[in-house]
Structure formats: structure tokens, C-alpha cells
Amino acid sequence: MSATRTALGIEWTKVRHSPVGLVTTLLLCLGTVAVTGASMASVGAGGILAAKSEVFVGDGGWAGLLGLAGQVVAAGGLLGFGVMAGWLHGREFADGTVSALFARPVSLRAVARAKLILYLLWAAAVAVALTLGVLALGVGLALAGDEGFGAGGVARPALTLVGVTVLTAWLALPCAWVATRSRGYLAAVGAAVGLVVLAQLSVLLGAEGWFPFAAPGWWVSQAGAVGPAMVLQLLLVVPVAGAAAALTLRAWDRLSL
């Protein structure tokens, strides 16, 4: 059994029993469904929420519902995923267990690698669960008699929502590095808030999707359209996330108490 596989099993045991893992998962999934549902309900009712929601919902239908959910994830999800990435890495310092991870056949690097792998797998599962939740919401709304929600054309916006969620999770990886360097998860939460603010500012300043942390939100705001510029903007997420993961591994490799 490889050291990383062993560490992966250990990390899974910890996450499985932790209220942080459960609460974050529920907040991301149910929170997105709830906010999306409330926003949908506000359409046509007047007010600030309605005005904003109507922009994202556009012509309505599945694309409108899933696009709205994508916007919710691109903003709020960064915070939720940042908390999880920060907690996974920062908890060893906060709980005082980090010293016990030194001088082991399962190296610190293997532990850090396992944390990253588990985080990415968990994020993918959240993306699927969250999308299924929004689809269920759509079915519920259609059952309520909204003729705008037919079954046609659901696959593409649903896959876009999965993609937006996964990319948002990748973009929260700097929080893992911040948690490691700051030796706790509080700074990582602050970093996640900072990333959300910076992403919003970049859009307001007209950077569109060129600021990687705003790229998923920009993509979904363009109704999932994939032109050459959009492909490049989304691809920029990969080196950002990759660099954050590499820096995190390096920080664990060189950890000194």
C-alpha cells in the first residue's frame, strides 16, 4: 500500500467524522439550491434581488435556472470551498496534531498530497450533488406549473454548472497554501473572502474573465458559451490552481515547527 493511499484513507476517516466536512458539504449543496430557489421566486416580484436574478435568468428555462445557480456557486462557492481547503490543511496546526505527523514512514508530503486529492474528489462529488439538487429544484418548479422549464436543452447548462463548481473549487486551492503557511484555518477563511471580493472587483473594473478567479462566473454569465477567448480564460484557471497545489505541497515538504 503506497504512503499516499494510506494517507488518503486516514484523511477520509477524519473528514467523514468531522462536522466541518458535513456542514460545508450541506451548505454548498443545499445553500446553492436554497439561494437559487429564492432568487427564482423573486423574479418578477420587484426589488434588488429580483432585478439581479432577472439578469441571470434571462430567457428562463433550464438554462436560466442552472445559470443562476452557477452565479451563486461562482461567488459563494469560492468561500465554501476555501473554508474546506483551509480547514483540511490548517486543522493539523489548530488541533496540535501536526507534530505527530513528522518522522513517519507516511511522509508529510504524502499527507499533503492525500489532502489535495481528497479535496479534489470531494469537490467533484459536491459539484455533481449540487447540480442534481438544482435539477430537482427545477423539476419541482416545473411541477408547480411553470411552463418555462421543459426537459429540452438541460444537459449543456447542467454540465456547465458542474464545470463552474469544479473550477471554483480549484480556484480555492490558494486557501490550502495560506492555511499551511499561517498554521491555522482562520487566515484561509480570510483569504477566501479576499478572493471573492477581488473577483467581484475585477468584473466591475471590466476585466471580464481574464482574472482567473472571476473566470467561472464570467463563463456562466455568458450562458456557457465557449469561444476562443473564453477557452483561454478558463484554461488560465489550471496554472493558478496547479501553482497553488504545488506551493502547498512544497510548504508541507519544508515544514518546520
Binding site: 486516514i10 467524522h17 488541533d95 507534530s99 505527530a100 505527523l101 513517519r104 507516511v106
Partner: peptide, 29 residues
């Protein structure tokens, strides 16, 4: 084959004594 207890014990608060000890064993190889 190197065992140690320096600073805080390996005790994840949300895990049972059994799980904590099993984890220590896995980390020890």
C-alpha cells in the same frame, strides 16, 4: 520503528480512541 510523543498527542477530537490509535498505527507504517 521510531515512535515519538513531542508536544501535543495525536488526538483528532472528532475521532474515537480506537480510530486515533488505528491512524497512529497506519502512520507508523
Amino acid at each position: 520503528g521510531v515512535g515519538h510523543l513531542v508536544e501535543s498527542p495525536l488526538a483528532y477530537p472528532e475521532l474515537s480512541v480506537a480510530d486515533n490509535l488505528r491512524i497512529a498505527g497506519l502512520l507508523a507504517g
